[in-house]
Design a protein around this nucleic acid. Sequence first.
DNA 1: TGGAACACTGACCGACCGGTCAGTCAATGA
DNA 2: TCATTGACTGACCGGTCGGTCAGTGTTCCA
Lengths: 221, 221
Amino acid sequence: MASAPATVVATSSETVTRILTAAEALFAEHGFDAVSMNAIAERAGVSKANVFHHFNTKQDLYLAVIRAACHDASQHLDDLGNDDAPMAERFEGFARAHLTSLLEHEQVARLTLRELLGEDPHRGQALAEQVYGEKFARFVAILRAGQNSGELRADIDPAAVATLLIGANVFFFEAREVLRHFPEISFARQPDRYSELLTEILLRGILPSDSSPSSSARKRS
Amino acid sequence: MASAPATVVATSSETVTRILTAAEALFAEHGFDAVSMNAIAERAGVSKANVFHHFNTKQDLYLAVIRAACHDASQHLDDLGNDDAPMAERFEGFARAHLTSLLEHEQVARLTLRELLGEDPHRGQALAEQVYGEKFARFVAILRAGQNSGELRADIDPAAVATLLIGANVFFFEAREVLRHFPEISFARQPDRYSELLTEILLRGILPSDSSPSSSARKRS
DNA sequence: TGGAACACTGACCGACCGGTCAGTCAATGA
DNA sequence: TCATTGACTGACCGGTCGGTCAGTGTTCCA
């Protein structure tokens, strides 16, 4: 008579949450095949048989984790449409918020990236497409509005801009550990600074503005 | 008395190559833990015991695969420093060549991305850092030269530009399957077109040029 | 009061894992 | 000619995997 319908056997209690939390952490850190049901049960503080009582198979548990992660992700970054600020500010705001969201919800981000790389049970792609597709569409719509109002160049593809920004942020997220060891990079530990630099480049480009006469006199430090 | 020194037990024959090829394909597609030595042996057409004859442990084999992949990668993209063309062209050339290289050597790219995500035996990171760090440094140096010659803005961080470009390409590579299902995106199956769009955005930015009077008259299709 | 329902457990299963080993076979060189 | 070497194999090892099951304790309702 309970309200729970289908998809997951579990109907009650905090135990399911404990299992899902443990599984999310382990799957995010090590990947599907590197995590055993025993390890999940141990981390959740229950018996392995109990895990199988709530989730029929390991794949079912994994799918439940992915589903929960997508549900989480669908609630992040939800407050960036209602802004009247100039486009340049909104753009930087989104860049910053997106990167911050990635870093703050590292486990969800890692799970998604593993799913992208084709961790063997690649069912979750459909879910991810739905969640991230909607966010992508909203961001592209904002850029289109900026084009229509003349705040952004009309002869560029807003979807390419969105892909570029999101890609740059995702890459920063997944490679930051390595980027730290590149001596040319000063921003590996400062995501906010990276967002600033990134925004400046995307807004105004890397070529000198034609009318500026100051180009040849500059020197690097 | 042979020439092979250390690092790997194997000293001879095409068999080692067959094993490495099979292992590279399987590790790239499924990840370290999802691939059994039996599967590798079967794909290579040899017995499992023979695999262990040439490689002491599964990790040794994995490291040998990573090492070979890094050696491959170090020979890609090696012909982009000797160019006298204008910076804008060199930039687009690099963007295109980098993305093409990712797509053409998909297995190496996937192995590297898995390593980035922290596949459990993450020893290979040091190797990858060395290879990609050198390429990164060379690209940054080219950008710096462009700044000194006045072809590029002097007030931007060339390392940020490089990270942005590489990140956008890597993201396109890893997400292209998903991007195909986003209706806003027209370039998911056309990497060359993506490189064009990306280059235009990075070179000139997304803000309208101040002196241009044409901004308000444009319409989207 | 009793029994249906359910969360939960320890013991257990067959399959498969990474890894070992004794031994076969062809090539080599003294 | 024959001992040595090294690539190679099938059989096998202990251990762990995902998954099952009989049974226990508790709750709740008839």
